[in-house]
Amino acid sequence: METIPIEALIPQRDPVLMVDELLEASDDAATTSLTVRDDNFFLDEEGKLAETGLIEHIAQSASALAGYRALRSGAKEAPVGYIGEVKKFRCFRRPAQGEVLHTEIRQGAEVGGVAIVDGKVEVGGELVAQTQLKIYVKPD
């Protein structure tokens, strides 16, 4: 897949830019990556990525898929999305500094600007977190 700078796909910026790269994308699925660095905003007191950092990472991964679809449809910039609901979240462990997150996003139904998205985060093939989100995409 052609590499698209992440800043073209999502509106978040440092210090809360929580996706490094969109690795793969299709109409309803995407894979992203993030390396946990020592300056990550969501790094906790124990030097690990907080549970809420995993939620934000999954949400921004979903946003990257939305941005990819929008740009492919001719939009000039990525849409702004907000988390509307978090469901079925499980955190099995917190990734440590230096670990690389690989995250799969699957988008289900989208009704009235609200998309249902399933996300799971793996580190080295180990599932560390999963959730289902409702993302509200702000109209242009």
């Binding site: 509106p11 978040q12 910026r13 440092d14 210090p15 809360v16 830019l17 905003f41 969501f42 907080a50 549970e51 809420t52 950092g53 939620i55 934000e56 949400a59 702004v80 907000y82 988390i83 978090v86």
Partner: peptide
């Protein structure tokens, strides 16, 4: 807070994840 520099530039909105973090 510096978080609003990036969420979103020129349009400060509280990240949902930060609000959950406040509860925690």
């Amino acid at each position: 807070c510096e978080v609003y520099h990036g969420h979103f530039p020129g349009r400060p909105v509280c990240p949902g994840a930060c609000n959950i973090e406040m509860l925690r």
